[in-house]
Design a protein around this nucleic acid. Sequence first.
RNA 1: GGGGAGAUACCAAAGUGGCCAACUGGGGCAGACUGUAAAUCUGCUGGCGUAAGCCUUCGUAGGUUCGAAUCCUGCUCUCCCCA
Length: 376
Amino acid sequence: MFFKIKSTDTESNARSGEIQTDHGTIPTPIFMPVGTVGSVKGVTQRDLEDEINAKIILGNTYHLYLRPGLDILKQAGGLHKFISWNRPILTDSGGYQVFSLADNRKLKPDGAHFRSHIDGSKHIFSPEGVIDIQRTIGADIIMAFDECPPGDATYDYAKKSLDLTESWLDRCIKRFDQTEPLYGHHQSLFPIVQGCVYTDLRKRAAEHIASLNREGYAIGGLSVGEPAEVMYEMVEVVNNILPKDKPRYLMGVGTPENILEAIERGIDMFDCVMPTRNGRNGMLFTSEGIINIRNQKWRDDFSPIDTKGTTFVDSRFSKAYLRHLFVSNEMLGPQIASLHNLGFYLWLVSEARKMIENKQFSSWKKQMVKKVATRL
RNA sequence: GGGGAGAUACCAAAGUGGCCAACUGGGGCAGACUGUAAAUCUGCUGGCGUAAGCCUUCGUAGGUUCGAAUCCUGCUCUCCCCA
């Protein structure tokens, strides 16, 4: 993997660049659609390529390990082949699941003991095991196994959690460096900065991780309940420490507004379920603002879903029709909305790139932040 | 013609003397969703009011009762069975 910065903003820490992988080049800043179980929900691979122009998508170690399981993925020749996706893939390690499935797990020094949400069977995720699993899945970028504490975690808990995450990280790196990719393409391991909302913990974590000289770095444990301002502050603290010449990935973020704010603070990569999940639930993100398409006011609005949208659904279908689909519980509604939202997210980051390259990012961002957060 | 059952809010359907402005489901309206156990979840849904509360409502007209969607009588309508 190779990362190069193409352009930097004069008034902020925003930068544009390129990540080269064996499955193609990813322009940054980038948004990565989430395809947890090997499917970006409601959107076909063809639409991801041709309509949305997604450059990289996510998969999830926890979910793919449970289903379809490693034997199938190995037989298929890895996740790329299994899901017929020849562009880059990033897999999350399952750290977030360790957090969100907290009722079903116990954290022990050797790893996380948990029960499958599917059939209740018992499993252990160790740092080494998670690396091995991600070797089998075969994503281009794989993540260290971490604990993602909730936004309101106490300092004491946050510190203990960070100790655990750091010890797990050392083991992940050791295992990663001792093993080889299975399918002939390179894999990169990204460590994750934790530390909750505590500046000194974030600094410590960032310094530790910066010293490891990996190919890219992630910031995790944000957008988990803390105020947005706190998240931005943590991003600033961490990005001041992380090396500038490596890609920085802010995990799980966020709203269009969050993304613009984070780009301004030097983040290069994002993923979030919001465009797909909220899309399925009737929320559309557009360049003019946010639409709840189920609201009655769209009932007789026959204008296109988004006149400035980049996907075919934006100009082809009306708001009134899309509302009708949602109200009627037609599966086409969520599909159209997911496609639209992902198209918008990818458009947003590509605009950001252009603006950074044209040295117009700051002024553009200022007005865009207002627009995208408007409720229509 | 004879016998039986029933009429409850937008729809369906509980409730059969006070805890009923009325269970529940649907529909409608609104909200939530941030490294996806989510095409899911939550709230509201007679009127006025921020609220306490007040007013009106269970086919219709009367009656019994301190009190009626609930009991009694007349009327209207609907459905089922037998001729």
